[in-house]
Design a binder for these strands. Structure first.
Lengths: 83, 83
DNA sequence: CAAATATATCGACTTTTCCCGATATACCAA
DNA sequence: TTGGTATATCGGGAAAAGTCGATATATTTG
């Protein structure tokens, strides 16, 4: 999922017609591509959010998630310096 | 354990008298510090070895493990470029 | 070779994680 | 306000990971 969110236009072309990608990709799109149930995907995304890897933005009935690039860089740096 | 192995002299002072740290730290030393059973620690170390994070060197009845720094750098780079 | 020591492997049990269906909540439209 | 759609949360069963004791293997020493 994290890799998918690097290139929303390529991985979630269906969303383009409805919303853009300014706020990220909505849960339903990710769920369809993941082939897991709605509840599972929703839980995954909230875990990733709590961990700081993605950010959520609620717009109407949709929740859009997008990557927080800083978190990945921080993780990379942490592995390099602390591990 | 991986952090401990960054500074064997500091974290495993007992071993200094017997062997050096050329080949790393032996299982018994790590086990004592970890506070887990011998079998658990042995299994951990073999998992870390198969994953490439540490290297094993058998010397007599002892097995010494030391970090493979390249693996950590590779992981850091992988996160930075692929994730 | 026998006993002692260090490590590895095996089988079982416990804890955690994964994933689901059911249900709750939030929002929108008529 | 009623019904439809999107997402979140909850409870539970299945799968995986963690951990142990017992035992096997390898090595050294006498």
């Amino acid at each position: 999922m994290l890799e998918w969110l690097k290139e929303p236009e390529i991985n979630f072309p269906d969303q383009l017609q409805h919303a853009g990608f300014e706020h990220g990709v909505c849960v339903g799109q990710i769920q369809a591509k993941a082939g897991l149930t709605q509840s599972t995907v929703s839980e995954y995304l909230s875990i990733l959010q709590r961990a700081g890897f993605i950010e959520a933005k609620r717009v109407g009935q949709w929740t859009y998630y997008k990557r927080n690039e800083g978190a990945f860089e921080a993780l990379s740096n942490l592995i390099q310096s602390n591990l």
